[in-house]
Amino acid sequence: MVEYRIDRRSGVATYLQIVQQTKQALRLGLLEPGDQLPTAREVVEATAINPNTVLKAYRELEREGLVEARRGLGTFVRRALGAAAAGSPLRSELAAWAARARASGLDRDDVAALFASVLDEQFADSTDNTEGDEAMNKGDNA
């Protein structure tokens, strides 16, 4: 079961934080097809956010085909995202690279900037890498 952590100062809309954290869990293999998402009640009780915000996030995930609501049962994962499971070789290579970057004196922001620039270069032709970015600028009013 995933646990959502809401950052009230991040400037990212609350429902989007739930969407992004769910996708992150799908990418890391923490959630797999068939797994159940926490009920709206459980999320609300743990995070003290508005129930409609949770429902909005789940509707968005459903719209993207990642989860499905089964009436009276709950919301379930339909498909996984990406192939970057937690234990994959790619992840350990990246971890080793990050350790080298740190050892060579780069701080967190330097590493993030470097990583982002490589991402931009590698995925310049992809139309698939902007999901959420536009919505991320929409303030935190959901």
């Binding site: 809401i6 009230r8 609350t14 709206a40 009640r41 459980e42 609300v44 009780e45 743990a46 995070t47 003290a48 956010i49 508005n50 129930p51 915000t53 935190d140 009013n141």
Partner: peptide
């Protein structure tokens, strides 16, 4: 959290006053 979970489950309408904006913005 308890209050909102109960409201979600039973469809309760809740009206809360405050002059602390941040306290209510997410709830």
């Amino acid at each position: 959290g308890t209050l909102l979970a109960e409201a979600a489950e039973h469809g309760t309408t809740v009206v809360m006053s405050s002059h602390i904006l941040g306290e209510l913005a997410h709830a």
